[in-house]
Design a protein around this nucleic acid. Structure first.
Lengths: 148, 148
DNA sequence: TTCGTTGCAAAGCTTTTGCACGAAT
DNA sequence: ATTCGTGCAAAAGCTTTGCAACGAA
């Protein structure tokens, strides 16, 4: 009992299964933003196996327990934050290679306090996406092959 | 020839059709964030009709011509900006009622200049989502029925 | 033994595509 | 007369669900 996801599930009365262990293990190892599909793919790629329905069911369960953060933008529009990232941050999204990088700058706090002053909105999570080209893609002049 | 979407399409050699007119008309009237589905629904609701494939094809066309901004977060994860909104802004997304409201604060600029100084990322679009509860939903204490 | 959990197969949704018909130029 | 654009129907992806079998407690 060290606070792992497995312990949390057990404590809530959910059973330990090899499938859940495989998923939790993968979740704890990941550092990038992911979805059901990419998570499934990496588990298979490592020679393990879990069915798609189980991936979806487990992700839903972890969301419900607030163990995983699914960031929604709209219906059918979301991604999961890696467990390794707990603190507030923005995302740099490269239109060249599609990579998502986290960042944080002082301006975050300024923006938040200004918003608190100027709106009646009760803020509970701020999510900042910056689209553009990462250093590597600028060098490779990949913008001629933009994915978006 | 007044710069309407219709003129732009014609100028590029695309034909005028009643289906395109219906879609363009609806696009020009909208002020909220939308997707193919909601756009289709509002056209039908007004007694007009356009098939789904035509909705999708037309939206793709307008994106390609940079007449519409489709904001991608990840694969299968996006929404369209209403045409009426041209200037930079963030989104207040209410977890109670799901409504998306645009906002702008001074902190935007600070954040951007700070980022330009601190990263090698070539910024080309910044997108800020703030999740929380709008004034109305705070009043109604809707957070017990949060959608997310 | 019980009942939660899984995989399969099938169903549901949203989005895309092939194709023949109809319309714009 | 061409060629573009549309609708239909079917296909393609991703996600969910029903159900029988399995396995953790």
């Amino acid at each position: 009992v060290n606070g792992s996801l497995k312990d949390i599930l057990n404590a809530q009365g959910f059973r330990s299964t090899k499938e859940r262990d495989r998923i939790l293990h993968e979740l704890e190892a990941r550092t990038d933003h992911f979805n059901a599909e990419t998570l499934h793919a990496s588990i298979l790629q490592k020679g393990s196996s879990v069915s798609r329905p189980t991936i979806y069911r487990t992700l839903h369960l972890l969301e419900a327990l607030h163990c995983l953060e699914k960031l929604y933008l709209k219906k059918n529009c979301y991604f999961y934050e890696p467990l390794s990232q707990k603190n507030e941050h923005g995302h740099l999204i490269c239109r060249g290679c599609g990579r998502i990088t986290d960042f944080w700058v002082e301006g975050f706090e300024i923006l938040k306090s200004e918003m608190a002053r100027n709106t009646d909105f009760k803020m509970n999570k701020i999510s900042i996406q910056v689209f553009g080209l990462c250093g590597a893609c600028q060098a490779e002049d990949k913008h001629r092959n933009e994915r978006w």
